[in-house]
Write a protein that binds this DNA or RNA. Structure first.
Lengths: 100, 100
DNA sequence: TTGACAATTCGATTATTGTCGATATAATAA
DNA sequence: TTATTATATCGACAATAATCGAATTGTCAA
């Protein structure tokens, strides 16, 4: 867990929002009819639509969030679904609580 | 409390270190003989020496840390002492714990 | 009131980030 | 196999951050 890297990711409003939206996908995104209802998170398009930034920017944001360990991708056919990595997020906060 | 601003401040290794060093000044800095023993924190010079960056860079870092609310300055004569704002730091972690 | 010293601010330069459109890759459907 | 759609990656450019040395300001002591 790289604290600096995580803090960098979380020092951007859009990325912070994405992490929050993914806490409750039903509340923030249209339903995924085909795949088993948000079990693996939300696809890139929906996140992009919600954020209002270009597809490539969102893809890059998601990639860097994933590299920092905050989210987990799952591929279903041509879609990539992203969900929160709750374990890492908890560790991160605990680490801050101890070390900061 | 501006989370983005705080995260930005804490996404730099030196600034993160400064905050940690100030947790235990005795362990990280030479004693301040004149002023009442670290009660108001540590002066800019000592922090700069420890960090190994230029005086102006450190001053700017401390200013931005202070603007984010993480540290509190106290002027004694020609020295400015900086100490941690424990209250804000605690609030910050609690906020992350709830909102993240 | 002048010197000396601590800290801050200013101006400049290089490095990193934000963001886009265009292109490439992967996967399905026709 | 080819067209279509979803993501990812690339290349570019503008905006912001890192960092320095120089100039300025604030405070005390001579």
């Amino acid at each position: 867990m790289n604290i600096i890297e995580i803090n960098k990711v979380l020092s951007n409003e859009t990325r912070l929002n994405i992490l929050k939206w993914l806490k409750d996908p039903e509340a923030h995104f249209p339903p995924h009819n085909d795949i088993n209802h948000f079990n693996d998170g939300v696809c890139v398009q929906y996140i992009g639509d919600k954020a209002g930034l270009s597809q490539s920017t969102i893809s890059q944001y998601l990639t860097m969030m994933q590299k920092a360990g905050l989210i987990i991708p799952t591929r279903h056919g041509k879609w990539t679904y992203y969900k929160r990595n709750e374990k890492l997020i908890k560790q991160y906060i605990q680490f801050l609580d101890k070390s900061l």
